Every structure is written in C-alpha cells, then in structure tokens.
Computed example of a mutant assay.
Amino acid sequence: MTHSEPARAAACRTRSPAVRPFAAVAGTGITVYGCEQDEADLFREMAPRFGVRPTIVEAAVSEANAAVAAGNRCVSVSHKNRIPDRALRALSRAGVVYVSTRSAGCDHVDVEYANSVGITVGNVAYSPDSVADYTLMLMLMAVRGAKATIRRTDAHDYRLGDERGKELRDLTVGVVGAGRIGTAVMDRLRGFGCRVLAHDIRPTTPAERVPLDELLQQVDVVTLHTPLNADTHHLLDRRRIEGMKRGAYVVNTGRGPLLDTQALVSALESGGLGGAALDVLEGEEGIFYADRRNGSIENDLLLRLQGMPNVIISPHSAYHTDHALVDTVENSIVNCLDFESRKQHRT
C-alpha cells in the first residue's frame, strides 16, 4: 500500500502554510542549520515579525557544530543532508528538544531515534504548486522528446526527429499518492483532457482510484508523489516496471528510492519504457546540490541515465521557487513557536 502525504504525520508533524500561530513566544531562539544565503535573508527578515532570534549556521548540522544550538530548544535543518544519529545525540545533549526540517519529507532523519533521545521532529508544508508545475513540465518534456530536440538544436541540427511527440489528451496518466502535491498535479491534468487514474489509501481522490498494479498496466505516464518509507521503498520494483505498458513514461519528483533504479535502467535500455523524467534519484546524496563539473561521479546508473536521449534528469529542484521558499522558512519558524507554546498541530 502507498501513503498520501498526510501519512507522514505518523512520524513527523506538519503545519499548513494557511495557518498562523495564535501567539508568538517572545524572544524564542532558533538555530538554523544548513542555511544558504537566500534562506538566511528570509529568516532575518521574518524574525522581528515573529519575535524570534535566529542563529544562522551555514554548515549542515553535525556532531561537531551541535553545541552552537546550546540555549535554544528548537532548531531548523535543511533536507539536503542526512542527519546522522550522532548529531541528534549531540543536539539532545545541547538541550534541543525540537527539530523542524525545512522539507515536506522526513526520510533524511531517523524520527524514531530522535524521539528516543527526546527530540520531536516536524516537517513543513509549502506551496504544492511548485512541485506540481514542475511535474507537468517534466511530463510534457518527456512525451514530446524535448531532451533529444534540445540536444540537436544545441548542435545546430534543426531537422525534425524521427520520433513524433504525444499529446496528453490522448494519454492515460497515473498519479501515485494523492496528497497536496498529487492532487495539485491532477487539477492541472484535467485541463489537458487526459484520463487520470490515482492510487492512494485515502478513501476519496479527485480521480478514478485503482489498485497500483492495475494502474501501472493501464497508464501511458505514471508520476510518483508518495512519501518514502519502509512500505514505499522501491514501490516501482522490477516486477511492477516490467508490468507497465510498453512505451510508457515514468516521472518522479517524490523521492529517488521510490524507484528501483537498476530495474528502470534495464527497462529503458531494452525499450520496454518510452522514457523517464527524474528530479530525484537513488544515490543523489553528495552529487545533487554540488558542482561536480571537474570531479568524477561515482554513480554508474546516473551516468547511464544521463546518456539516454529519452531521459531527463534535474537535481532535486522541483520545489525551488520563490513562493515555496517563503512558505518553508515561515512554517519552520511557526513549527518552533507552536512547539514552544505547546500548540502543536497534529494531522
């Protein structure tokens, strides 16, 4: 079974960007780790309005710098780096009792271990439109063969390609995970006139709801929007990928390990699948968000995927919009204030 986005709250707690705190806890200190310049500017801009004192740390949270949080019960962390257990222990020793991750997912934190050392973990809600828009962009690029077209024109070859593109209205699209983002994707798909199928454990979705294996057998495009957990790791495994329609496309803007990457590569190389558009990838850690132009990449599957004309790769950037960044910073602050005021919102 797969889980929609609200199911994350079983492990970590989420606030909606539409809700504001009832009251700020004056003078609350928040240590902000892994904070890049654009985030730092927003934290400093919003701090007076919320009555908080942010301590900005550019480096990701670690055992070595956890002591910087001493005196602050709440910290905010980035999703770009996994938080090791030893860092959680060090935060706990420094007096931290709440970690707000600036992401919708918590798979980079061992939430159960955090709880065992006295730390509650909360995630944030941000504009679902950021990822939904990007998903539709990737979907359109995939079915129109945009990568091959751009490659040819970059080389000044302006001939039409051998393969014609497909129109979404002629296709059946499957959405796996009908949380806020999956629902926003389905809202957009209705405008294209295509048939939409959904798979989710929620009793109602804005589309026809079918079992996962049945969905995969029927759709021309599948897009993944379910959180990553033990149940959804390799949700699209070799068996399910081989059971998809010949020539179908896979779009993933959720989490890399939702897909069995080796099985995906095999299906693409054999011609079983028509293409893929991936904003996330297994083994992306240490590669995405870094300039690797002059270094080697120790991920053979990534290199094989990037060499394919029918595969689009982007570096986990679907969420990266002005609006979503404001939501993320604001709701990370709100999470901490709610925790301090004991007005924690449980989904």
Rank of each mutant, 00 (worst) to 15 (best):
M1Y: 14
R8D: 14
R8P: 11
A9F: 03
R13E: 15
T14D: 15
S16V: 10
P17V: 05
P21W: 00
E39D: 05
R49F: 08
I56D: 08
V68S: 01
R86N: 12
L91I: 02
S92V: 14
G95T: 05
V96T: 01
T101W: 03
V117L: 08
V121K: 02
G122C: 10
S127P: 08
A132F: 04
D133Y: 08
Y134Q: 09
M137L: 08
R144N: 10
Y158K: 01
E167V: 07
V175Y: 11
I181W: 01
M186F: 06
L189H: 02
R190Y: 15
G193K: 05
G193Y: 15
H199K: 01
T204E: 15
P206N: 01
P206D: 08
P211R: 04
D213F: 08
L215S: 05
L216K: 02
Q217I: 04
Q218A: 09
D220W: 03
V222L: 12
T223G: 08
L224N: 00
T232N: 06
H234A: 04
G247H: 01
A248F: 07
A248S: 07
A248E: 09
L268V: 00
E269P: 09
G271Y: 01
G272A: 09
G275A: 12
A276T: 03
N294A: 07
G295M: 07
L302G: 09
M308T: 06
M308N: 08
P309V: 08
P309A: 10
V311D: 00
Y319V: 02
N331E: 06
V334H: 07
V334Q: 06
F339M: 09
R346V: 15
T347I: 07
